[in-house]
Amino acid sequence: MASTVASLSTTATFAAAADVLPMRRKAAAGRVWFPAAARRGFAVRSSGPATPPGISDQVSESIKKAEQTCEGEEGSGECAAAWDEVEELSAAASHARDKLKEDNDPLEKYCKENPETDECRTYDN
């Protein structure tokens, strides 16, 4: 184990990590080991699938409505409820994106049904 000096977060040393990386990470070349750690600032704007248009419209509508409701009414129950709706829809949008990512990736889908196969091993030591 001591010799396994594998990078967990940088793409630059991706190859060095090959012996501990799971098979399907190898297949998805270019993907980093800890995507969450690799997100830098607003780079997230351009990554991952888009929100389904229906929910996306709802989110932007709800923001507009909240801004209107809160004009001169900051601190009112109506204003809080309007921004709470924005939060609820933003969370729903995020979940929808995650689901889409899963559904769109044939390997993810295959591995969900066949987690024991070689291609789907997620820990290789």
Partner: peptide, 27 residues
């Protein structure tokens, strides 16, 4: 975290993310 989650969303801005957190904070 909410910037990371929501900035990609159309209609959201730093202001809207901040406003939502602040409006929900008393409750």
């Amino acid at each position: 975290w909410k910037i990371q989650r929501d900035m990609a969303e159309r209609g959201h801005s730093l202001e809207s993310i901040q406003a939502s957190i602040e409006a929900r904070k008393p409750d």
